[in-house]
Design a protein around this nucleic acid. Structure first.
Lengths: 149, 149
DNA sequence: TTTAAAAGTTAGCTATGGCTAATAATTTAC
DNA sequence: GTAAATTATTAGCCATAGCTAACTTTTAAA
């Protein structure tokens, strides 16, 4: 599940302090956020338009084309997508699994926020940021509240 | 409020697409996360021990000392802290304001998660990640739920 | 007071994630 | 079928955020 080279990790963890665990976890999560955003978006684009072209990815993410090229190189290196130069992008099995997982989280967070009383637009924006940082336990509580709060 | 050089921003925004706004916002938030974590932690350390030493910051964040030195340089450049070589760190007025704001968010998110039914440890970990990504609207709903849900 | 330990800094490495400018490939239009 | 427009890539820049190794400063101990 963890396609995470983690090349800059210390030989020996800097600290086993209890308080540092939360930050360690957050940094871990941050490293995967971009990959998750891309994979989720690629799945959406394929679903909506039959293919995921870099130009569409760039437009949706609000970044320039070369940024997308570089990011896709990294995703390919990590085994989440396959691609050929100047062609559309495809998800590997692993990428597809990650996309499903992301979509699931996103939907639960979104439904939860809307149920809480948030307007759809703000809910979408907040869900985008929150979805990468909720534990499975929190997700379960969100789902329960959304379903019958 | 925004001490944000944003040097790599495009001359003309890549896209005004509605769907891209959420991602733009998340990227914006991500840029400030580290600074917020540091400032919040520095305030805590000062409160707990009377001073914030780099060695303590490194231990709490779970990173190495040079990482902290560099980050503190950046915070000083941004006007959030003041410091002298080999000495403890102090918050500027702006840094103090940001720390208060972060603490407020953190506490609301934490209280909310615990009220939802999460155990304290997981709540702490999730709050650390979530606090940077909640809008003022969501925060208000969280607070309301925590106070009398 | 001198020395050893701890703390902090500097230098230099890697990788990510933005960007622009220039180039290459593919599509589209004529 | 060629020319123009669009799309994609490459090269090269900058800043962040981590790391180790080596060095300096400060603090603590003997």
């Amino acid at each position: 599940m963890t396609h995470d080279p983690n090349l800059a990790a210390p030989a020996e963890p800097p600290s086993s302090d209890n308080r540092s665990e939360a930050f360690q976890g957050v940094r871990e999560a941050r490293r995967n956020e971009l990959a998750e955003d891309y994979v989720e978006l690629i799945a959406e684009l394929i679903h909506e338009h039959g293919e995921a072209r870099p130009v569409a990815i760039a437009a949706r993410l609000g970044v320039r084309a070369p940024t997308v090229t570089k990011a896709l190189d990294r995703l390919a290196r990590e085994g989440l997508i396959t691609r050929e130069p100047y062609r559309s992008v495809f998800l590997t099995e692993e990428g597809h699994a990650l996309a499903r997982e992301c979509r699931r989280r996103h939907e639960i967070v979104l439904r939860f926020l809307i149920r809480l009383g948030l307007d759809a637009e703000t809910a979408e924006r907040d869900a985008e940021g929150i979805e990468h940082h909720v534990s499975e336990q929190t997700l379960a509580l969100f789902a329960a509240y959304a379903d019958e709060g």
